[in-house]
Amino acid sequence: MKQLLLLSFFLFSIISFGQQITVNGKVTDGKTGEPLPGAEVRIYKTNKGCNTDIDGNYVLEVSLNDTLVFSFTGMKSQKIKVDKQEIQVKLFEIDPIHESFDPAYYIRRIKKLEATTMVTKEDIENANNPKYKFKKNAKNNVFVIFVSELTSNDLNDEDLKFEQKYNVKYSSIGNYKNDYLKKYNKLTFKHLKKKFKKSWLSEIRKDAVGLKKE
């Protein structure tokens, strides 16, 4: 009897593992609770997946015990094993490289074994230098455009497509001074003009700080 029970449990596990189910849910901003339209929902190690709709909702056919990867531009990706039909996901923003100088941010990312690793003197001296920050970001293939009064609700489908097409990221002005924002944006605009000629000008947001209208 014991062997029969073990065999039954084993067979049930095999059947459950390959069982096809429909998973649905909503992907939201973990900080604001707002939906994330266009977020990617993909089965781990495959090309099968979908994107969330305008309300952040998704529906996907998967196998029970598959692992789903949820991702969105500027957000930290999240992996979740499928064990139920409804999976709600909250994604949180990655610490942006272009944010105000934060020693803890740099310490977490410097790949050294010593727990006492400190930031460089150059980082500290150039904490509010837009040119230094731009070059540092560019080395990591990060290009930022600061726009006024930006919230996640302000970004429509056209804006999201612009970010993807030209590999840029819109950012709110935060606590930066207007002079800093103008200088930083001009460096980004110079990069766009050099790489994409004038094709980007007709698609840029009108409220980009310091943009010279052409």
Rank of each mutant, 00 (worst) to 15 (best):
D123Q: 03
L6C: 04
P103A: 08
K213R: 14
I80N: 11
S171T: 08
I145F: 14
A39R: 00
T28N: 10
Y44G: 03
K90D: 02
P37F: 14
E40L: 04
K2L: 12
Y184D: 00
L201R: 11
V69M: 02
S8V: 04
K133L: 09
Y180K: 02
N51S: 06
E214D: 15
F189E: 00
G174F: 09
I43H: 05
K90F: 10
V168G: 04
D29T: 13
Y106P: 02
D95S: 03
S8G: 08
V142Y: 11
P103C: 01
S71Y: 05
S171R: 12
V59N: 12
N178W: 01
Y170K: 07
Q3Y: 12
K81G: 03
K195V: 15
T46W: 07
E122M: 00
I107V: 10
R109T: 12
G38P: 12
F162D: 03
K206R: 14
N51H: 13
L91T: 03
N178F: 10
K161F: 02
E34P: 04
Q20I: 09
N137P: 02
I80G: 03
H191D: 09
H98D: 15
Q78T: 08
K212T: 11
N65R: 13
M75H: 08
K206H: 15
F9Y: 15
T22M: 06
L201S: 13
K139I: 12
F12S: 12
A115C: 14
D55V: 06
H191G: 15
K48F: 15
F17K: 15
K193W: 05
G210E: 10
N24P: 15
K81E: 11
G33I: 10
D207A: 06
N128C: 01
L192Q: 02
K177D: 13
I107A: 01
K169H: 13
Q164D: 12
V62K: 02
I107W: 07
K190C: 09
S199W: 00
E34I: 01
V119N: 01
T188A: 10
S171I: 06
V209P: 06
N156L: 05
Q20S: 07
I87Y: 07
Q85N: 10
N141Q: 14
E163H: 00
F10C: 13
D159P: 10
L155Q: 09
D55T: 07
E99I: 11
T28W: 01
K31I: 09
I54M: 07
S100C: 03
F12V: 05
L181M: 01
S152V: 12
I21H: 04
E61F: 01
Y166P: 04
L4R: 05
L68V: 02
S172G: 09
K111R: 13
K183Q: 15
L211R: 06
N65I: 04
Q19L: 10
C50G: 10
L181I: 08
F70D: 00
W200L: 01
N141I: 14
D66G: 13
K2M: 15
L4V: 12
I173Y: 07
M1N: 05
R205Y: 06
E122H: 00
D29K: 07
D154W: 08
D157K: 05
L91C: 06
I204L: 12
N140S: 15
V41H: 02
M118N: 06
K206F: 14
K182M: 10
I204R: 03
W200F: 13
K136Y: 15
L155I: 11
